[in-house]
Design a protein around this nucleic acid. Structure first.
Lengths: 347, 347
DNA sequence: ATCGGGCCTTGCATCGATGCAAACGAACAC
DNA sequence: GTGTTCGTTTGCATCGATGCAAGGCCCGAT
């Protein structure tokens, strides 16, 4: 009834515990006879490894932790799915933590709060805790997802946010839009970068300053996108002819607000977002978006974790000054859908 | 540099390891002096518990596993979020597994594949493995989410699917709809139940059989909802006046297909779904749905897990025949939005 | 002064698996 | 026949924390 241990298997097979361990872990020098005998007992008793015990002894748990702000946000859910899939291919189990964007929680994670249970940590932070923590390197494998971490302290994987925003806005410009709203500015590093991309694209297109409009929000949610656009529509300024939302959730909220006010998309206002969440293909009208390659992000992130555990496993490393952590920019595509298709001849 | 252990703290504070353990775990009989001293060493050295080691000794890991088919499906993502939140309140960490709806994987989980790392398992299965596995009770805490498990073998938490479907369809009938399509029949138990609810509501409303229409799909995804409705519209049968989708993802797909074909919602066809995912409030038009209370589901599920570990911890239990496992029906609400609002006088 | 009891503190064994290195036996060479 | 080597198997200590129960100590009661 109770758990089957190696010892039970050993007794059943008439060998030592160590031999069972050797069979289980694929140690080569085991005679075919013994191996077969042990294997039979293994199957017969239904042995299952206790990963905790192994982890205790060997120092590796086979888990990695993934911390995202809100699992219910589509982008993070899809990211988590990609990470779980990639980890599964490597025989790794993923432990998902939701930080709720609480910088206190994020700090605790950077501080190593999950170290003891996970071989490595993937952190997708909203509010990268600033210098005070960023100053010292963690003593465990850590990879940041999606954000530039302050000061290149941590390796990071994600799209180039500036380029992504520039691409999206560039596309809107090409469609003939000029008075383009940037929706999503908030305190985050990510927000700053996407705003910068917007600036670059607007400058490059020589759009007059009077047409620039950066609308701040608190969170990148449908709700906030809706509220911000509704407020914009109720204001007395001239209507924009495009909305560039910093993520698709905001864009979805924007679409809803526009729809509710009878503004036509894309005829009156074009809309584009970032993330290309699955939902984007089903909005009204379907949403143009920037699609990061989540599988690549997940794969690279895990590879970077492995690299790190490789090095940090050898603490005897001579004190070579650690180079700035890798900052990998993964590919993205512009997916054009109806929400931004060319609407009229020029402006 | 290396990990700080209790032993290190003990030496630093000049007490025994056991005393440190006592302080950490909040054992009451520790003198204030000692406690303070130990606490100081704890802080100074930055001690962090090794949960693996504790788990090994105490038999409890502080983890539970949550297995869902696809984390990227909004409903499951929102469910996972609720579970993580509820677990967090109890100091429990959640390990998320994605089964991809693979019944082989689900079976392995029922078989105890996660037992060694988790104190309990929450399984949201698509294809409940049938009798062969369902026959024997697992020897670890397990709670099924959202499905009736075959034969009451496992405790289960979720809404009453029959009632939920009946409520949704009843609402459509009240709005004046008669020719109502049930969208989502597939092999799953869940699908059967929602179909049954549809049947009951149609019968109760004395809708003539000619108006009944059950459309099968493979998965409950936006894509399948879109494809099925598109096919329906292209067919030569008379148009339905309502679509009852077995979940919101299907409904979203249906809305897109209707929109693409120029069919007006709700004027021409009303639509309702189940799950009330966040996206539902932002579709075009906003989607009427059945809203399960995810927080209640999560709370009850965790409570049931705890109950089970309570009993199964005492294996000395005299052989009282185990009663049929608890089948808890959690509350749900009908959330009426524009997609189903009354469109015309009567049928 | 002595004893009993409560409060703190401690040592030791232990959870299940693996690292390490010794022990064992057989095969081979000289 | 003896020594060496290689392949296989084993015993023991160990990872870090907790269960258990004993050991000290102090205080009040008799």
């Amino acid at each position: 009834m109770a758990r089957v241990r190696m010892r039970d298997v050993a007794e059943h097979a008439g060998v030592s515990v160590r031999t069972v361990s050797n069979v289980v872990s694929g140690y080569p020098h085991v005679s075919p006879d013994t191996r077969a005998k042990v294997q039979r007992s293994l199957d017969e008793l239904g042995y299952r490894m206790d990963y905790l015990a192994r982890g205790l002894r060997s120092g590796r748990t086979g888990f990695i932790a993934l911390a995202v702000p809100y699992l219910a946000e589509p982008y993070f859910a899809e990211l988590a799915q990609a990470v779980i899939r990639a980890a599964g291919r490597r025989g790794i189990t993923v432990l998902v933590e939701a930080t709720a964007g609480d910088s206190e929680v994020e700090r605790r994670i950077l501080d190593g709060g999950l170290t003891n249970v996970a071989d490595g940590v993937l952190l997708s932070a909203l509010t990268v805790p600033a210098a005070d923590v960023g100053a010292r390197k963690p003593d465990f494998p850590l990879v940041m997802l999606g954000e530039h971490s302050v000061g290149d302290q941590f390796p990071r994987v994600g799209i180039d946010n500036v380029a992504a925003a520039r691409t999206a806005v560039g596309h809107l410009v090409e469609q003939g839009c000029r008075r383009i709203v940037a929706l999503g500015q908030n305190g985050s590093e990510n927000g700053r970068q996407r705003t910068e991309g917007y600036r670059q694209a607007m400058s490059a297109a020589r759009v007059r300053r009077v047409n620039w409009l950066v609308v701040p929000v608190e969170d990148w949610t449908r709700e906030q996108g809706f509220a911000a656009v509704r407020e914009l529509l109720e204001g007395d300024g001239p209507l924009p002819d495009a909305v560039f939302a910093f993520n698709d959730a905001l864009a979805v909220g924007a679409l809803r607000a526009l729809d509710a006010s009878g503004v036509r998309v894309p005829e009156d206002v074009a809309v584009a977002g970032i993330d290309d969440i699955q939902e984007a293909a089903y909005t009204h009208p379907p949403l143009t978006s920037i699609a990061p390659d989540l599988d690549v992000i997940a794969e690279r992130a895990l590879a970077l974790l492995e690299e790190q555990s490789g090095t940090s496993a050898g603490p005897g490393e001579p004190g070579a000054p650690v180079a700035a952590a890798a900052q990998e920019a993964t590919p993205f595509r512009l997916v054009v859908r109806a929400s931004s298709r060319w609407r009229s001849a020029g402006r």
